[in-house]
Every structure is written in C-alpha cells, then in structure tokens.
Design a protein around this nucleic acid. Sequence first.
DNA 1: AGTTGACCTGGAGTGCACTCCAGCTTCTAC
DNA 2: GTAGAAGCTGGAGTGCACTCCAGGTCAACT
Lengths: 130, 130
Amino acid sequence: MTYAIAEAAHRSGLSIDTLRYYERIELIDPPARDSGGRRAYSDDDLNWLAFLTRLRTTGMPIKLMREYARLRHQGVASAAPRKRILERHREDVLARLADLRSCLDVLDYKIDNYERMCAAETTELREATA
Amino acid sequence: MTYAIAEAAHRSGLSIDTLRYYERIELIDPPARDSGGRRAYSDDDLNWLAFLTRLRTTGMPIKLMREYARLRHQGVASAAPRKRILERHREDVLARLADLRSCLDVLDYKIDNYERMCAAETTELREATA
DNA sequence: AGTTGACCTGGAGTGCACTCCAGCTTCTAC
DNA sequence: GTAGAAGCTGGAGTGCACTCCAGGTCAACT
C-alpha cells in the first residue's frame, strides 16, 4: 500500500510542505516515486513519521531527531546509541511533565482565586441591588 | 526591597536581555529606577515575573501573556476575562499533559525494545566467544 | 583621576521549525 | 483535447522568542 503526499500528510498530521521539508533535511528517507515522479509513501514511511511526530510532541529538537534518523540507517549496530538518545529524552520528558504539573497547580490556585473574586463581586452586586 | 537587573534575572531565571525585552514588549511594567537611572525591581515585580515564567513553562504564547498583562492593569473589573484566559490555558495544559504521557508510553516501549535487542546481542556475543 | 564593572539604549541578528511562492509537469474527468 | 486538481522544484519568507552588539553612562574602588 502506498500513499500520495496529501494522504500521507493527512495520516501523519503534518502538512504537505512539512513532509517535503522533513525530506529535504534528511529526517525521513526520500519515499518511492510513482510513474509520474510523485512521492509514494509506504506504510513503513508512515510508521516512521508517526514515531517522529511523537518525538516532536515530546519536544525533541529536529537536530536530535536527525541524529537518531542517521543512526537508524546503520542498523542494529547503532541500537545502543539510539537507546541512549531515547533514554536521555525520556528524562527530559519526565522533567517537563513534573514542571507542567507544578505549574498546573499554580494555575489552579489562581483560577480558584478568580472564582472567589467573581463570587464576591456577584454577592456585592446582589446586596447593592437588593 | 529592590533588586538590580542582574539579581532580578538570577531570581526569575530569565536573562538580563530577556527582562529588558519583556519590558519593551509590555509584558512587564517598567520597574522603578534608582538615582543612576538603573532598573530597581520590586518584590511585586519579581512575583509577577515568577507567574509569567510559569505561564511560559506551560507554553503560553507571549501574545496571550501580553493580553493577560493588559487586563491586569484594568484591575478587578477584568477578573472575569483573566479567569477565562487561565481556564482555557488550563485545558491546553491538561491536553498537553495527556499527549506527553501517551508519547512517553511509546518512548518506554521503544526503549524496552532496545533493551531486548542489546541483551540479545550480548548473549550472541557470549555464545560466539564461548 | 583613572580603571573597572554593571548598566543603559536602539537596533540588528539568530535559531528553530516551518510555510509560502512562482513556474512547471502530470494525471483525471468531461 | 482541454480544464482543473494535485504534485513537482528551488528558493524566499514568516513568526516566535529571544540574544547580541556598539557606543555610551554611572558608581565604586585604588
């Protein structure tokens, strides 16, 4: 099964331009081409894209993704360094999760304050117009 | 208590340049100045900076922070719209937390795979050299 | 009085991750 | 056989959030 670029974009959640951009910067391998010279993405291509978008979602910079992609080409021999990249990245993600959660607490606290402020105001208003 | 810009930078975790930048774009009010025309940040200034950095950590774009800062100047009257901004942002943060967690699962899965790959390789090596 | 270091201003430059564009080709449908 | 949609290329442009710089001021120490 192969997919035209529009379909690949749709399935990966990336834009057509971004797919071509990722190819240019060697984040993905040039996909096969159909008889008319158009890109024909394979399921493997899409799987790799899906993984890349996860890395992106977790905030991995493109440079590091490229490094990872480069290692992938070396096959099994590069399993160890690839693992190291993912492990380090995992730590980053965990740290960010913790940060996010603690900021969320502050946000909740603030919202709660506004809640009370608005409630107080409403009460005042009711009393004033009573 | 007031703080020179270097101290304010240190305490807020922002760079000196970023502090001046935030002032230029009206994210923070111009702090007081000492006799020599140098910025003298107050505790209030630092508290506001601390909150801004939380918003930043949670990925709020500067534009929205500016909007929030603008509303703040209108005092109590703007409590409701400010609350709305924080509530919407809270939803964003929750969504990102969920995304991050699900991506983390994929990451864990991949790392686990590499774990097995490396273990298998080691075993092979041991067998080959035995 | 002179040197050093922190700070000042306005403006230019940077890095990242796309995003858009002009001008061209190729398939599909009528 | 022609119109329109989808895709192609190389290169330029965008938005965001800083970051850096030149050239100057000010205060404190020696």
